[in-house]
Design a protein around this nucleic acid. Structure first.
Length: 146
DNA sequence: AACCTGACGTTGG
DNA sequence: CCCAACGCCAGGT
């Protein structure tokens, strides 16, 4: 018997799994989802899979944005407004259809950098004087000026 | 098969 | 900030 329909694209399940794992109040880009799903460079696939996701399947699709934090739908469209609404409900505000990734990015957001889990870095060893062990300090690599 | 079109992304002008 | 050019991949014309 012929397959009723095209087989599920490889990675389909992983993509769903990854999106479902985005914490509430956080957002991730299509590219990041693809990356985490083990499909680097397949951002487009993520978008298609999402679009093909049948209703009824609960998925935090609204937490997926473009790499620059903008909503992928046409501004003003039904889906666009719906996404803005859902995000706002989670405390993620949108400005001109764009979300501040530095603030709400899944990983590496300001909160984490300022108040979150910046704990691991403090094996401070009370040592009088010699503080040379401090961060090697990011030296600016010689920049080949133009 | 060529061409167009997307819930995309990056680089460069 | 806008635009063009690619890279990417599956579907539809």
């Amino acid at each position: 018997m012929k397959s009723v329909r095209t087989n599920p694209p490889p990675g389909h399940a992983e993509i769903h799994r990854t999106i479902a794992a985005i914490p509430s109040g956080r957002v991730a880009s299509y590219g990041e989802i693809a990356m985490r799903a083990g499909l680097p460079g397949r951002a487009r696939l993520v978008g298609r899979v999402l679009g093909e996701t049948p209703p009824g399947v609960e998925l935090p699709w609204h937490r997926v944005l473009r790499s620059d934090g903008r909503i992928a739908f046409p501004p003003g469209s039904r889906a666009f407004r719906e996404q803005v609404r859902r995000l706002a409900a989670e405390g993620v505000l949108t400005r001109n259809g764009r979300v501040d990734l530095a603030l709400h990015g899944w990983e590496r957001n300001l909160d984490d950098l300022l108040w979150g889990p910046p704990k691991p870095i403090a094996p401070r060893k009370p040592h009088a004087g010699a503080d040379r062990l401090q961060r090697p300090r990011q030296r600016r690599s010689a920049r080949p000026e133009s």
